[in-house]
Design a protein around this nucleic acid. Structure first.
Lengths: 111, 111
DNA sequence: TTCAATACTATGCCTGTCGTAGTAAATATA
DNA sequence: TATATTTACTACGACAGGCATAGTATTGAA
C-alpha cells in the first residue's frame, strides 16, 4: 500500500486547512473530517499536526480564533481565515504548480 | 517571484538524485548541475542537502559509493544506485502520484 | 454503565533542510 | 604571474514541522 509520507505533505497541511477556511470559519475536529473526506479517505491529518498548525498560523496572522458553543453545549474553538491568510493560500497554490512542474521531471511512470 | 519551499521539496530530493542515478553512476557536483538543468533552472539543490542525502541513502542501502579520479586528476566520490534504491525510487514515484491527487483537491486555480 | 465519538492541550523527540564556514586543487582571467 | 572562479567536497549546529504519547473532559449510543 502506497502511503503519503509526512515529508511530502509537510508544508501543505496549512494549505489544506486554509482551503477549508476559505469557505467558512470552522473548528479542528470538523476540519479534520473534511480533509479526510476531500482526500477520498486517502489522507488523515494527525491531531497534533492540526492543532499545532492552528497555533502557528494564528501567530503568523493567517487565521483568527474565537470560542463558540455548539448546539450540544460543547465548547469549540473556531478559526477564521484573514486577508493575509488568503494571500498566503494563493501563494501556496502558485507554489504548488511550480513544484509539481519541477518534481514531475524526475518521476518515471512505468506503463 | 514564486519559489520552491524546502518544506515542499523535502523528501523529494532523494528521489531527484535517484532519478539521475537510474541512468548511470554520478558524483555530487555533476548531480547538482543536472538537477538544476532538468528543472529548467527552477530548482537548485543546496550543497549540504545534497551531500547529507548521500550519507543517508548510503546508510539506508539505496546507493553505494566509490572513489574515482577524474580526467583532470581531481578525486571524486561516485554514487551508484542499488536494487533496493531502485525499488525505493519506484515507490516514491507511486507515492508522488497519490500525493498529487490528494493535494490537488485543496488547490484552487484562479483563472 | 460502559464505550465510542467529540474536542481539544501538553510535552518532547525525530529528521531533513539549510546557514555558515572551511579545505583544496584546477582552470580561467587580468 | 597574480587573482578569481569553478570544481568537489566535509563539518557543525540550528531550525521547524510532524508525530508519538499521554491526558482531560463532555456528550451520546449500546
Amino acid at each position: 500500500m502506497v502511503e503519503i509520507s509526512s515529508d511530502v505533505i509537510r508544508g501543505y497541511n496549512d494549505t489544506m486547512i486554509l482551503f477549508i477556511l476559505m469557505e467558512e470559519p470552522c473548528y479542528g475536529y470538523e476540519i479534520s473530517k473534511r480533509i479526510r473526506a476531500l482526500s477520498n479517505e486517502k489522507y488523515i491529518i494527525k491531531e497534533t499536526t492540526l492543532y499545532s498548525a492552528f497555533t502557528r498560523m494564528e501567530k503568523n496572522g493567517y487565521v483568527e480564533s474565537y470560542s463558540q458553543n455548539a448546539e450540544n453545549g460543547k465548547k469549540r474553538t473556531y478559526y477564521k481565515i484573514t486577508e493575509s491568510g488568503k494571500n498566503y493560500y494563493r501563494d501556496k497554490c502558485l507554489e504548488w504548480t511550480l513544484t509539481k512542474e519541477v518534481v514531475e521531471n524526475f518521476i518515471r511512470r512505468e506503463d
